[in-house]
Structures are given as C-alpha cells and as structure tokens.
Amino acid sequence: MHISEGVLSWPVLASGAALAAAGTAVGLKKLDYDRIAQAGILSASFFVASLVHVPLGPSNVHLILNGVVGLLLGWAAVPAIVVALILQAVLFQYGGITTLGVNTVIMAGPAVICYLVFAPMISKKPRIAVFAAFAVGFFSVLLGGIVVGLALMFTEKNFFEVAGLVVAAHIPIMIIEGFVTVFCVSFLKKVQPSLLPGSLN
C-alpha cells in the first residue's frame, strides 16, 4: 500500500511527515539499545514478507503484514516500518522522500492502533485470540486503506471515486491478511510464544 510521488498536495504531505516524525520519535524512545538488533532483523523480515506474493483468483497480491509487525514490536513498529519504507524507496523506488511520511502513517499507524486495541486479547482464550488475530490482520489493512483514501480526498475533493476504488480494491486483501494473521499468530503461539505480547519475557 503505497501512494506514489507527485500525487498528493503539500499540506497532506507535510501533515503526514509531521505525524510520522512524532510516531518515530515515540517508537525510538520506547526502543532500548539492546532491542534494536531484534527490531532491525524483524524489520528486514517485514521487508521480505512484503515481497511474498500469494495467489488470489487469476492474479496475486503481496502480503503486507503490518499488523503482525505491530503485534511483535508495539510502538517500535513505527521506526521499523520507516526503515523498511526507506529501503523500498531506494531499492525499488516504491514511494519516495516526499511521501515517506504519509506512507509511514498508512502502514505504521494501523499497526500501532491494532497493537493497542487487540494485543491484550491475543494471550486470552483461543476463541478470543483467533478473533483478535483476524481483527489485527483485517483492520491493519482496512485502516491503511482509509488513510490512503483520506490522503487522496484532502488533496483533491474530486478524488472521491478514486479513494473509494482504492479502499474497495483492498477488501480481498483485508480478508487474506486476516486469515494469514490468524495462522501466523497461532503458529507463533505454538513455536515461540515469547515473541507475542502478553507473554512473560
């Protein structure tokens, strides 16, 4: 989920950058020096996971997994996602310098919100945990799509249809991300529960 360079107006770009800078500052503050290696290598995995294409009907979509990164890193997901976005911009020119802020809000904002809302439920009974995991995957994409839509609409009110199409196009991805997150969380619960929030570590 990226907005390309050159689409948005400067007030939208500037507010995105300001929000992203504040979020990154909070994330960095909450990230101790001895957890940076962990955050960095998880950020690298997030980067690689976003290259994984899963089939969807005749086409395919790539995983986003910002929700899972939020669960694993909490607030530290913001700097981790910023770094992954810079790498994507320099390596593939997906996004760029002026849109770095807005794209960070699109990806990291929902990650943090889902972490704050659903993380406490992940360690509860399996039925609640499955629901929470699905919600993390689903809402991290839905909220991202809504931010994309809002960014477009604040740029130009006639972008309404485009914004709607963008959100609609993400509906199948939300469902896939929901399922993938459920399976991913249940896997982590079995294999290494200490990675998930709410465990004693």
Partner: peptide, 13 residues
C-alpha cells in the same frame, strides 16, 4: 504462507 512467514519471524528473532 502464514507458517512460512511465522518461521521467518522465529528464525529472525
């Protein structure tokens, strides 16, 4: 794919 990515996270950690 979810297990695969989960494994990726476990090994990364």
């Amino acid at each position: 794919y979810a297990y695969l990515v989960g494994m990726l996270f476990v090994r990364a950690s």
